[in-house]
Amino acid sequence: MNSTHKAPTMQYRIGQIVPSSNITMEREVPAIFAKRMEVLPERFSFHSSRVRMHRVVAEELAQMNRDMGRCAQELADARVDIMSTACLVATMCMGPGYHRQTVEDLSAEIGDVENMPAVMTSAGALVEELKDFGARRISLLAPYSDALTRTVIEYIETEGIVVQDAINFSILDNLEVGARDPMKLLEDVKQLNVTGVDVVVLSACVQMPSLPALEIAQQALGIPVTSTAACTVRQMLRRLNLRAEAPGAGALLGSRTGLA
């Protein structure tokens, strides 16, 4: 009797360092991976460690950056394969290119362990995955104050990507950001100047929900649409040497919805 040997399915552990008031990244990131698991063989589990932050203001963001080392150590104890910070603006408010320093600092906090995880940031994922996709000009939506939005724009442009237009909603309470209806973005994006851009970033914030609106916005605009959460998943997959694809999560994860 012939038997067919099946190769074992690869299992990966995904770790996130999440602000204590973030209620989005532990939903959207697993949701994107769940759709991927419907069509591709790799399996994923999800693990997080939380660091205190309630209001999206400079003082709390700086304190959160100082406290993230503990979270990195905790996730390393779980032997995650990859870990990412889950707060874009906390990194960007520290100055241009700071995502590289964050990776160095967190790696140092983990130290010499048997299974060293790949370390990344959501801020780095946004700029690096946009560049890898070929985006040189973007427009974006963000929940931040005017000052923090300017910081985000300057950070992105320092990385060589032009921000043609940005709309921000000046929401300081992070729980309010997470409670915002993602479908409102479909009306918001109509006010955004997207002429000639390569990509629209529907949410330049990992706390502002956008996943249910990504494909609808891309269909309406006929332009590649993404979010920081989607870019985070893309970089996780690329760092794990896996196909950077997932259904229903915008062009940077392989969707051709609405595109010529």
Rank of each mutant, 00 (worst) to 15 (best):
F46K: 11
G250F: 00
D132A: 15
H5F: 15
S122W: 01
T4A: 12
L253G: 00
A72D: 01
R239E: 14
I171E: 00
P41A: 12
R136A: 15
V194P: 02
L106Q: 01
I153E: 00
R27Q: 11
I23W: 05
L221D: 04
L202V: 05
A166S: 14
D67N: 12
Q207R: 11
N65V: 09
Q218P: 07
I223K: 00
Q11Y: 12
T24C: 06
D188F: 08
Q164H: 10
A118P: 08
E114L: 10
F169R: 09
E28Q: 07
I216S: 13
R150P: 04
L88Q: 06
E128F: 07
L237H: 03
I32S: 01
D112E: 13
E215H: 11
G196Q: 08
R239T: 14
R234K: 14
G250E: 01
M83K: 05
L106V: 04
E154N: 13
A135M: 06
T24E: 02
T85G: 02
C71L: 09
R239W: 10
A34G: 07
A76Q: 02
R13N: 15
R36Q: 04
Y12A: 11
T232G: 07
S227G: 04
D188C: 10
A78E: 14
G95W: 02
M92V: 11
R243S: 14
P182A: 07
S170M: 09
L185M: 09
L211V: 10
E28V: 05
R150M: 07
G69F: 04
S21V: 03
D188G: 07
R36W: 04
M83H: 05
M83V: 10
A229W: 03
E129T: 05
L253R: 01
N65T: 11
E59V: 12
A147V: 09
I167E: 03
K131T: 12
L61M: 10
T151A: 02
E60H: 09
R238I: 09
N241W: 13
S3Y: 14
S145H: 07
G69P: 02
E60G: 08
P8Y: 10
R136P: 11
S139P: 07
S107V: 09
M94A: 15
D105N: 14
A179P: 05
V39P: 07
A217L: 03
A78S: 15
V57Q: 05
L202W: 00
M37N: 06
V39G: 10
D188P: 05
E26G: 04
P209M: 11
V152W: 03
E59G: 09
V200G: 00
L240R: 06
Q207C: 13
L253Y: 01
P8T: 11
F169I: 06
E74S: 09
L202N: 00
S122I: 05
V206Q: 05
A251T: 04
V206T: 12
E42Q: 13
